[in-house]
Design a protein around this nucleic acid. Sequence first.
DNA 1: TTTTGAATTCCCAAAACAGGAATAAGCTAC
DNA 2: GTAGCTTATTCCTGTTTTGGGAATTCAAAA
Lengths: 304, 304
Amino acid sequence: MLNRLEMLRIFCTAAEARNFKEAAQQLGISPQVVTRAIQELESQFGELLFHRNTRQCRVTREGERLAHIARQGVEGIDCLFRRAEANAAQQVEGTVRLTAPEAIGQTSLVHSLARLRQQYPGLHFELHLEDDETDVVDEQIDIGIRHGLIRDSRFVARQVAEVPFFMVAAPALLARCGVPRTLKDLQQQPVVGTIDQRTGKPWPWFFRQESQWIPQELAFISNSTQAECAAVLAGFGFAQMPGFVAIPHLRSGDLVEVLPELAPTPWALSVYRPQRSPVPARVRVVYDCLVSDFSNAAFFPLLP
Amino acid sequence: MLNRLEMLRIFCTAAEARNFKEAAQQLGISPQVVTRAIQELESQFGELLFHRNTRQCRVTREGERLAHIARQGVEGIDCLFRRAEANAAQQVEGTVRLTAPEAIGQTSLVHSLARLRQQYPGLHFELHLEDDETDVVDEQIDIGIRHGLIRDSRFVARQVAEVPFFMVAAPALLARCGVPRTLKDLQQQPVVGTIDQRTGKPWPWFFRQESQWIPQELAFISNSTQAECAAVLAGFGFAQMPGFVAIPHLRSGDLVEVLPELAPTPWALSVYRPQRSPVPARVRVVYDCLVSDFSNAAFFPLLP
DNA sequence: TTTTGAATTCCCAAAACAGGAATAAGCTAC
DNA sequence: GTAGCTTATTCCTGTTTTGGGAATTCAAAA
């Protein structure tokens, strides 16, 4: 018998049972195994653990002392594996780590998570808001939401919506500078943008037929789409922004779309998670919920 | 891998090592085993414990949490078995339970134990003083000293001395009643005795050629040889007592022997212990010491 | 691009194990 | 006392588990 944990478990049971046979029955093993386990323990401890003859067994005092300590040890390990069973039994609890673009993470995502939390009070969330892709495996992320293609084959990605881009400006700015009629018109105007963290350059603007333009002189540049949006609202200049940032302001009239005919093909919005073989229940539940919520057009009514 | 303890041990090591290979080297096993143990744990917990690819391994946060708890559990069990090793390495410490006749336990035995205690400060003693044989196995005794034959085959007995019986009386009593010349004389005199716990009757007196006499009318009877001795010293009557009770008083003159020619064959004094297969070092040390001390004639100078 | 080194999978010999049958030895009831 | 019953133990054998060599895969480094 090499399995120390089982030896101790057998010993603890035997110490409480009236005899080895009873202990064996409780453990669902044969009495021979009990005998051997106890013998092995006795030889390891150099100490008699049971007074026994062919007829009866009584634990010695040293045995009782050992049983007392051993019970704690065995219980400690068992308790650990009981959690495992609870986990395997698909209990939804623990921390789920998510990453999402700022504008989504600060609004609709939080509502989805809040509902999940009501349903599963054991859930905790950790939210990393980044507009650029981050190394999800290294960052130990369970679920991500990203605007744009997910190329990485380590991920299971699910496209849930198509989010268009809008070129927008504040009404005050338009009143001052006039409404641009062509791309050229637009490129003469002050422009607001964001930084691509990976390259350090401004994000390009995208137009129909896959054409791009990287603005060179920006009136305002930031690493935050929310700041960018605030700048546009303040009349700093024109900007291109994804629907989930622009739509609320277009609806309220705080922003106005320009040159809609140049708008590029919408980009996919994807919910994704790393391809890890055992998917904990808590992750699956959140993933499914987000896929369902973000597939719901109500979150991204594509136009008024 | 069925051995949960080893699985956890491997996991804890891997969680601290830089990679599986290193963990395997530390544990003296092959990397395959590490892989398997971790996979098994992951499937049991339904939880990825390491982010890994063919090139690198990093523990997940859930893994770190588990490792933290698991370390305690594994350490708990290991600590238990470290004691076992200390025991096996023949450390002399712990409690030794002894039984002995009252008169021996209150005097010379205590001195032997005191010397042992000086030599092995980790030793503790538990002393059961009983003049009659007790069921040593049930009483969980490690070592016994007994005056008389040890018949029980469950014991390893070692005869260390021969202790004679003396018929004695106080000088004052002799002055009052005269010195008996024959057994008949003696049987007319007041007598002091002890009770045989097993039968409830007085202990017989023993004489040469195996003859016995059970005194019927006793001036004083007790279950304690020390009390019996005190009664004799106080002049209650005559008594027969073993050397280890009588000799000090014969030496000091507080008692006088009568009818020495009737004295029976001396009885053996034996040190014995239950036949338990692993004999803990502490028991062996004490046993050897007692055998040696009580074999030493200085403790029982058979006559002045 | 090639090279390198770690994780993993596959496979099989060796070790460990479990339990049936036989044995020994108390208790109990006659 | 003795027969019968029960339990611990030992021996033995078929089965399971295990560990590591060889081959494979794959990401990082060169």
